[in-house]
């Protein structure tokens, strides 16, 4: 990946607030068309990093290039090429969904007919004439993403778009985000949901205390962890002793409802279980980004 083809280049960016090092030497590049996730608990420095890239804050040190240009100080040439959805839902007072889109579009000199297309993209066509404050949390998030897309930017920055949404609304939003990526946009987004990042992102950067701890595609991060796979069975189909005796099993234990087997070689374990007809209630859980986080920081992930 050469830097000329990169949508975002961040080199050793630093930002302190007094004693607090909010961003402490962060570097990464995002390719054009990539879905890039910045992941970490609250206070990890995700939002500050994003704000520096967007050109809202000046870094204390380091360099940022967006499509080959510096976003700081306010770079008017660059602004039409980036779309930013903010953490709070920022809308004009008392305007309908469609009017919000038209108004935001007008800031970029965009024809207001595009509003209908955007409403359709985020599935709000039937809410076009509803005032923004009458929409649900998920609908507002989708509307604010649509507002960020009105001027057809090349790079879209989304700051925790799925925070505080119910599971159904989150899934609806995932569909929207995938549709945006299909349009060839580069997406940089922050989240504190590890499961979501695993599903959506091409690559994720795991941040904690202002630093990037790991940066890779989610599958690579998980595989590199060398964490055991957990196979769970209904209690009673197999005894703990029998389970421990199976080839490849590292450890087995039982609680009131189930038997859990840990293994790094799930293939022979599963075939042995199949031979014995002991597949009742079978569940296989492989390591997730949460395990990666635990491994990197030595503490349980708490969003």
């Amino acid at each position: 990946m050469t830097e000329e083809r990169s949508a975002v280049v961040v080199r050793d960016v630093r930002k302190s607030y007094g004693e607090l090092k909010a961003v402490d030497g962060v570097s990464f590049t995002v390719a054009e068309g990539e879905f890039f996730g910045i992941l970490g608990p609250n206070g990890a420095g995700k939002t500050t990093t994003l704000e520096i890239i967007e050109g809202l804050r000046e870094p204390d040190g380091g360099e940022v290039r967006l499509l080959g240009e510096s976003p700081w100080p306010r770079n008017v040439k660059l602004l039409p090429r980036i779309g930013v959805q903010l953490q709070a839902s920022s809308f004009f007072d008392k305007l309908t969904a469609k009017e919000q889109l038209q108004t935001f579009g007008s800031l970029y000199g965009v024809n207001s007919t595009r509003a209908d297309e955007m409403l359709e993209l985020v599935g709000l066509t039937d809410k076009a004439n509803e005032q923004e404050n009458k929409l649900s949390g998920g609908q507002r998030q989708r509307l604010s993403i649509a507002c960020a897309l009105m001027h057809d930017p090349d790079i879209v920055f989304l700051d925790e778009p799925t925070a505080a949404l119910d599971p159904q609304a989150r899934r609806n939003l995932w569909d929207v985000l995938r549709a945006i990526q299909k349009r060839g946009k580069t997406i940089v987004y922050t989240t504190h949901y590890l499961d979501e990042a695993e599903i959506l992102c091409d690559r994720v950067a795991i941040m904690d205390n202002g630093r990037i701890l790991a940066l890779d595609p989610p599958a690579v991060l998980v595989r590199g962890l060398d964490a055991p796979t957990h196979v769970t069975l209904q209690k009673g189909v197999l005894s703990v002793v029998d389970a421990t005796a199976l080839e490849g099993v590292e450890e087995a234990h039982e609680d009131e409802v189930s038997l859990t087997i840990s293994t790094r070689r799930p293939a022979p374990v599963l075939s042995a279980l199949a031979e014995r007809g002991a597949l009742d209630g079978l569940q296989v859980r492989t390591a997730t980004l949460e395990d990666v986080f635990l491994n990197l920081t030595g503490r349980e992930y708490r969003a």
Partner: peptide, 17 residues
């Protein structure tokens, strides 16, 4: 005040206007 609190000002600052 409302625009600053709701970050509309910030949104405007990010537009070429």
């Amino acid at each position: 005040v409302s625009w600053r609190r709701k970050q509309v000002l910030r949104r405007i600052r990010l537009a070429p206007v």
